[in-house]
């Protein structure tokens, strides 16, 4: 069975005919060609596919695309505007929150959701918000520092993301 899916991805409207069983992550990577969202596991283990659906962080690998009718999807590919990195992207870059970079899209999107709902998170808040995202390079220490860096930059009004 097929569905006509209407939604926005990073602010761009899409109308696509998709199979009902298509996962959101496959829709994003294969239909829209946005490969920033990664697949690191066989379903719900690692969080590398985290995207925002109407501002909420979700595993795109556990979400059927057909359930996203009229939704607003945001992925890592659409974060930076005018080629300028957002505070979170700068944090992950400058604090070395990204080593191999494979978990980074999911980490950044989960962090983005956190900072939207809580601009001044404690370390415990950050740990809580990233509990479903696995990183194998950093031991998470510099990921926490990256999110703290972004929160401070945003608080000082540097650049809203």
């Amino acid at each position: 069975m097929k569905t006509v899916l209407s939604l926005t991805v990073n602010g761009v409207a899409h109308d696509d005919v998709i199979p009902d069983n298509m996962l959101l992550v496959d829709y994003l990577r294969e239909k829209t060609g946005l490969t920033g969202t990664k697949i690191g596991c066989d379903g719900g283990e690692c969080g590398a596919c985290t995207v925002l659906i109407d501002d909420r962080p979700r595993h795109a690998c556990l979400t059927l695309a057909a359930t996203c009718q009229d939704s607003r999807i945001e992925t890592v590919d659409g974060l930076s505007r005018d080629s300028r990195l957002t505070a979170l992207q700068r944090g992950f870059n400058e604090k070395l929150g990204a080593q191999c970079g494979f978990c980074t899209p999911g980490m950044i999107m989960a962090s983005e959701a956190l900072l939207r709902r809580n601009p001044d998170p404690s370390e415990a808040d950050i740990r809580d918000a990233l509990a479903a995202n696995i990183c194998r390079c950093t031991g998470y220490v510099k990921i926490i520092e990256a999110v703290q860096f972004a929160a401070q930059e945003l608080a000082s009004g540097e650049l809203a993301s």
Partner: peptide, 19 residues
């Protein structure tokens, strides 16, 4: 120094084999 390929990794532009 931040990694020379850091910006690609934080913007989703870095191309891994499956991409």
């Amino acid at each position: 120094k931040p990694l020379v390929d850091g910006p690609e990794k934080t913007t989703g532009k870095a191309m891994f084999a499956a991409d």
